[in-house]
């Protein structure tokens, strides 16, 4: 798994490539914690290059979302492929997370 990262106009953009599983989720968790430590309140995570996610990946996102809520921040997930989106749906997490179809939609939401 790789994570590309850029900060633009106070919005942290992450693009994840690869599988998000038991083995790789700790790296994402560490990256998100590092961003939260910088008091960033707006995060957009692009999932278009993630082909697989398991419960460890979901747990990492749930933890990050809870932390963002505590500081009134926004965490938005974009472009999840059907296989990944369906795992969110099975766990009913599509009702908890903001999952949008494009980075532009996400950007509009965080800058509102």
């Amino acid at each position: 798994m790789k994570i590309n990262q850029k900060l633009k106009d106070e919005v942290e953009h992450l693009e994840i490539s690869g599988d998000l599983d038991f083995q790789t989720s700790p790296d994402l968790r560490e990256k998100l914690q590092e961003i939260l430590n910088r008091q960033v309140r707006k995060i957009i995570i692009n999932l278009k290059k993630v082909g697989y996610i398991d419960s460890s990946g979901l747990a990492t996102f749930v933890e990050a979302l809870q932390k963002m809520k505590r500081i009134n921040g926004r965490l938005i997930l974009t472009e999840a492929v059907p296989a990944v989106r369906s795992v969110f749906e099975i766990a009913k997490l599509d009702k908890v997370f903001t999952l949008v179809d494009s980075e532009n939609d996400a950007l509009q939401m965080v800058t509102q």
Binding site: D54, S55, T60, V62, Q66, A91, K95, V96
Partner: peptide
């Protein structure tokens, strides 16, 4: 409990539903 209100605890549920 779904949706979960804490990280973790979804693995077995995902097995059963998948």
């Amino acid at each position: 409990k779904l949706p979960p209100d804490k990280p973790g605890g979804l693995g077995i549920y995902l097995i059963k539903t998948s």
